[in-house]
């Protein structure tokens, strides 16, 4: 294999997969948190990010009657919107179902997903809009291999947020409370931890992570329609979370990057004529293998 082919077919997809995978990792992080606190899967996770992206672009472009705000403010409002939507979901859908079987709650989150897509559609008119990269320009550009500043920002954000998360869970009282609830809710209640408060807090954090991920991802792909972030990132994010046994925060981060690279390489190396949708197939196989062979995840360890 010549150096040129290697760069084109192997290295370049790995680079873009790494960046894409960082977004999966961010979303996976939120999924793991919610699983730890509520023992459920949240199918609306990626669309929380979609809400953030749409709110951001509304204010960034001053759509309709909305004021045209500076980009950082618009981004902040977008993330806030995601947090708000997550909190509302927790209050109106998840909490009333606290004692219901988990599978019921999962179906309900799918309902939330559909609802969010519809609301985005109403607000945006249903078609794709362009989402500019927040950080323009390229960090590396050698023809085949191109790393945009946006891509660098994604990796940096992921690194910062994961360090913050690690500190949060090991140092802050809230973090340890979340862990306590996730391990033994009744005992946690006995020692005076409000399970409801912890649940709300976790959903807020998950919404924040999804909001950051959604805005970065929309800016990277450049175009997004209502629901397209779910189509793009929900399954990889879940696969990332499952890689870590759905309970390990570092597992989700590493899993996200691994999944991103696997998907990207499969897309690049397997021609469409031989196997359409090779990226998706690779994800499916990876998920199935992990679930069948090591249900506790490759890095599965309760942390």
């Amino acid at each position: 294999m010549s150096a040129e082919v290697l760069a084109l077919d192997v290295v370049a997809p790995a680079v873009s997969g790494f960046i894409q995978g960082s977004v999966y990792g961010l979303l996976g992080l939120g999924l793991v948190l919610l699983y730890k606190s509520n023992r459920i899967f949240n199918f609306a996770q990626a669309e929380f990010g979609g809400v953030a992206a749409f709110v951001w672009i509304f204010f960034d472009t001053g759509r309709g009657v909305l004021p045209n705000l500076p980009t950082p403010v618009a981004v902040l409002l977008g993330i806030l919107a995601a947090v708000l939507v997550a909190l509302l979901t927790e209050r109106l859908v998840v909490r009333p179902l606290f004692n219901a079987p988990k599978i019921t709650v999962v179906v309900a989150t799918a309902g939330v997903l559909l609802l969010l897509i519809a609301v985005e559609g109403f607000l945006y008119g249903g078609e794709a809009g362009s989402f500019p990269a927040i950080f323009s320009g390229d960090a590396v550009n050698s023809g085949a291999i191109r790393v945009t500043n946006q891509g660098v920002a994604i990796v940096v954000v992921l690194a910062v947020l994961s360090i913050l998360a690690a500190l949060f869970f090991s140092r802050s009282p809230f973090g340890t409370a979340i862990l306590a609830v996730s391990q033994e809710a009744t005992a946690a209640r006995l020692v005076g931890i409000s399970v409801e408060r912890i649940s709300a807090l976790t959903w807020g954090i998950a919404g924040f992570l999804a909001g950051v991920a959604g805005i970065l991802l929309a800016g990277t792909i450049g175009l997004a329609a209502p629901g397209s972030l779910t189509g793009l990132a929900l399954v990889p994010a879940f696969t990332a979370a499952v890689f870590g046994g759905v309970t390990s925060l570092p597992g989700a981060l590493v899993g996200g990057i691994v999944i991103g690279i696997i998907e990207s390489e499969a897309q690049a190396l397997i021609p469409k004529e031989n196997l359409p949708g090779a990226g998706k197939v690779a994800l499916f196989v990876a998920l199935l293998l992990v679930l069948l062979v090591r249900p506790a995840g490759l890095l599965g360890k309760e942390t």
Partner: peptide, 11 residues
């Protein structure tokens, strides 16, 4: 997603 195609074209 256009990332794969874009890589091929650019490369």
């Amino acid at each position: 997603n256009c990332s794969t195609l874009a890589t091929q074209i650019r490369g």
